[in-house]
Nucleic acid binder design. Structure first.
Lengths: 194, 194
DNA sequence: ATACTTTTTTATCAATTGTTAACGGAAAAG
DNA sequence: CTTTTCCGTTAACAATTGATAAAAAAGTAT
């Protein structure tokens, strides 16, 4: 399992490079955990004080709408960071659900301990801020898409961002991410393939 | 103009109460500025290192879509905080535009100086984190609305959140916030009034 | 391999939303 | 006060998307 932790530095460096010295501080906090496909590993309303890196597989954040359907908010693929704990919780209670869409390997760390590293270490603080920024930027991009593109354009944009994802996870999850029904998604797939 | 600064503590306390001692640290950073209706006071692509409180009036954040139309992302009414600088900029360059929809009074402070206060003062740090959280929560709520509600339901939800706003700002701005055309908005307004 | 479940596609019809254009009224400019 | 411009409404038509149901395809388990 130790080799999974090795990937974390690469993930961090891709977002905002840090020195090996800074990484050593982080490395002490890391633990590996795996979940099977279909497992909801963060539950809305439950206590959560953990940050996550996703090393293998795909997961999503989602909420249940009034009709009881799962609404996909974000999709996370291997070699990235899940939404920061600080913005995904209120008083350590999770505002969102997270579910594994394939078997996944995660690396976890305690959010409070990481925050303390951020306070004392400029590089780590910059990395943390950068993760927050990226989170907001991707939300704004999605928001613009939903507000100003047609469903077909949104699917095309989705394909540019997440290549080959239609072959790896259920279309229902993609459809709700795009704000359409899975039937509409199927229609658009056909249209675009002609 | 000094009375405008007095409102800032109320705004902060509504989000996350802080002691008078902590507020005094913030108070030293504050400056008042006003803009006329229609003025775009933060420009995408331009340098910006400022945090803002809105004391009077209404403003919006927006982007220009490929068709050249303004897409309203968020609406800010008096007695609230604009999106934090850290998430609205990349390397101090703004990712968004902000425009006054009425005459507005803002209170500004330098984002870097405020960040330093956050590092050294727990109350201020908690306030700062709370602002970030709220920003994300409102984005997620909007996202869910766009992804799972009809336009009519979105308008109803909008009216619950922003009472009487349809009488204070142009419908075009509201329509693009809701992800519909202003013609559709007009139709829905009629439907709901019958 | 076979049966069983779930997912994806297809088809039909209905509802929603967009597009274009015209009209009326309110606000701004002269 | 009059003219002009901008904004909101309305109407007719087109395009998109949703709802429901059924068939085909793909996965899972036995």
């Amino acid at each position: 399992m130790y080799h999974l932790i090795k990937n974390v530095k690469n993930i961090i460096d891709k977002i905002c490079p840090i020195s090996q010295k800074s990484f050593n501080e982080i490395e002490n906090l890391l633990e590996v955990v795996s979940f099977k496909k279909g497992n909801t590993f963060i539950l809305k309303g439950k206590h959560n004080t953990t940050e996550y890196f996703i090393i293998n597989g795909i997961c999503k954040s989602y909420l249940i709408n009034p009709k009881g359907e799962e609404i996909t908010l974000s999709i996370f693929i291997e070699n990235s960071v899940l939404s920061p704990q600080s913005i995904r919780t209120s008083n350590t209670i999770s505002n969102l659900n997270f579910k594994a869409l394939t078997d996944i390997d995660l690396v976890m760390m305690d959010a409070k301990k990481f925050e303390n590293l951020m306070i004392n270490n400029l590089e780590i603080r910059q990395f943390g801020h950068r993760v927050l920024q990226n989170e907001l930027i991707s939300k704004v991009e999605k928001e613009i898409g939903l507000a100003s593109l047609t469903a077909k354009e949104r699917l095309q944009a989705f394909r540019n961002t997440y290549k080959h994802l239609e072959n790896r996870i259920p279309h229902t999850d993609i459809a709700s991410y795009l704000g359409i029904t899975n039937i509409s998604l199927s229609r658009l797939r056909k249209e675009l393939s002609e």
